[in-house]
C-alpha cells in the first residue's frame, strides 16, 4: 500500500510539473524555444552590422559560420529576417536595410551597456564580461536599457573601449589606430581591445594590457612588436597587436614619479591621494570618492588585519576599511615625516 502511495504521488507530481501553466516544463520549453529564435535573430543582426562596418560584405556563408548553423535552418532565418524587413539578400551577398541597421545598433547597445554593468557593478573580470553579456543581452528592451544607461551614468565606451551607441543610434566617434600603426617611441594610451576572438582578448588581458593603460612601442618589425607598459616589456606578434587600438595619452599627469598604490603604504605612514585608476569605475569608484578619497586628500594607513587584507585607513577624520583590491586602484604619494598621528581634520 505504501509503495503504491509513493508511485501515485510521483506520477501526480510529475504531471503537475509538466502541465502547470506559466511555470511548468511545457510552458518553459515553449518560452525557451521562442527566446532561442530571438537570440539567433539578434546575433545575425550583430554579425551583419559588424561585417559591414569592417567593409567586408557579409555573405550567407559568413553568417552561417558566425552562428554555427547551416542548411535549412540558415535559410529559414534569412527568410524570417527578410520578412521582417531587416535584410536584403542579393545572390549570396546579404545587406542590412536601414531598419535592420537600427535594430542591430540596439542589440550592440544592449551588449555594450551590459558589459559596462558587469565590469563596473558586478565586478566580473574583464576577460569574462563579453561572454556573460552575450548571454544576457537578448532580454533587454528599450525602456529597461535607457534605465540601465542612466544608472551607469551614461558611459561612452564599453570596458574594452568600444563606443556605446546612444538611444538614437548615433555614437561618439573614436580616433584610434591599431598598435601596429603607432609610431615607435611615442607614448600611447590603450583605447580599446577587440573583444573577439576571445582567446586573443584573454591573451592580451593576461599580459596586463587593458584600456586606459599608457604604453610605448619600443621596436616594430614585421615579426613582432616590443611594447613597454612602464614596468615590463612585452613582445607581441602583429596579429595580437592589431587587436589593440591606441590613441594619444589623455591625462599625462597620472603616473607621477614616487607614487605608489595605497595598499603598499606602510602602517602609520601618511600620504596624499594622486589619482584613482581610470579603469576602476562604477559604484565602487563613486563610493570611494564620496568617502573623501579625492585627489589631494590625505590618508593615513591606520590598521592591518592579521592577514594584511583588508586594511583600515584614516581619511578626512574617519577610519575606513578597504580591501587591497580597492586600495590598489588608488595611487598615492607618501608624505615625509608623518609618524605622528594625523590632525583631526
Amino acid at each position: 500500500m505504501q509503495a503504491e502511495g509513493w508511485l501515485i504521488l510521483a506520477v501526480v507530481g510529475l504531471a503537475v510539473a509538466i502541465l502547470i501553466p506559466q511555470a511548468g516544463i511545457r510552458a518553459r520549453w515553449r518560452r525557451w524555444n521562442s527566446a532561442r529564435s530571438r537570440v539567433l535573430f539578434e546575433d545575425a543582426l550583430k554579425h551583419l552590422l559588424d561585417q559591414s562596418q569592417r567593409a567586408q560584405p557579409p555573405t550567407r556563408e559568413s553568417l552561417g559560420g558566425a552562428l554555427g548553423i547551416s542548411g535549412r535552418k540558415l535559410l529559414n532565418l534569412i527568410a524570417r529576417m527578410e520578412a521582417k524587413g531587416v535584410l536584403q539578400s542579393v545572390g549570396g551577398a546579404l545587406r542590412l536595410t536601414p531598419e535592420g541597421q537600427r535594430h542591430a545598433l540596439q542589440v550592440v547597445r544592449a551588449h555594450r551597456l551590459l558589459e559596462r554593468y558587469l565590469a563596473d557593478e558586478a565586478r566580473v573580470p574583464l576577460g569574462q564580461v563579453h561572454s556573460s553579456a552575450d548571454k544576457a543581452e537578448h532580454g533587454l528592451t528599450g525602456d529597461r536599457l535607457d534605465e540601465l544607461e542612466a544608472h551607469l551614468g551614461y558611459p561612452q565606451r564599453d570596458p574594452h573601449g568600444d563606443p556605446i551607441p546612444h538611444s538614437d543610434g548615433s555614437f561618439s566617434p573614436v580616433d584610434t589606430v591599431p598598435l601596429t600603426d603607432w609610431p615607435v617611441n611615442a607614448s600611447a594610451e590603450i583605447a580599446h581591445v577587440e573583444d573577439e576572438p576571445e582567446f586573443v582578448l584573454r591573451q592580451i588581458l593576461a599580459l596586463g594590457l587593458r584600456p586606459h593603460l599608457t604604453v610605448r612601442v619600443l621596436e616594430a618589425c614585421p615579426e613582432h612588436l616590443v611594447v613597454s607598459d612602464g614596468e615590463r616589456e612585452h613582445r607581441l606578434p602583429p596579429v595580437i597587436a592589431a587587436n589593440i587600438h591606441v590613441g594619444p595619452v589623455a591625462d599625462a599627469g597620472v603616473r607621477l614619479a614616487g607614487s605608489l598604490r595605497l595598499a603598499q603604504l606602510p602602517d602609520g605612514r601618511e600620504a596624499e591621494v594622486v589619482a584613482l585608476d581610470p579603469a576602476f569605475r562604477g559604484f565602487s569608484r563613486r563610493r570611494l570618492m564620496d568617502l573623501g578619497l579625492t585627489p589631494k586628500a590625505r590618508v593615513r594607513a591606520e590598521l592591518s588585519t592579521a592577514f594584511g587584507d583588508p586594511r583600515a585607513y584614516r581619511v578626512r577624520g574617519t577610519v575606513i576599511a578597504l580591501r587591497n583590491e580597492q586600495a590598489n586602484r588608488i595611487l598615492v604619494r607618501p608624505l615625509e615625516g608623518t609618524g605622528a598621528p594625523m590632525g583631526a581634520l
Binding site: 564620496d290 568617502l291 573623501g292 578626512r316 577624520g317 574617519t318 583631526a344 581634520l345
Partner: peptide, 11 residues
C-alpha cells in the same frame, strides 16, 4: 554633523 569629522560631513 559629527563635530570630530566636519570635513567629511560638510560634503
Amino acid at each position: 554633523m559629527d563635530a570630530t569629522a566636519l570635513e567629511r560631513n560638510l560634503n
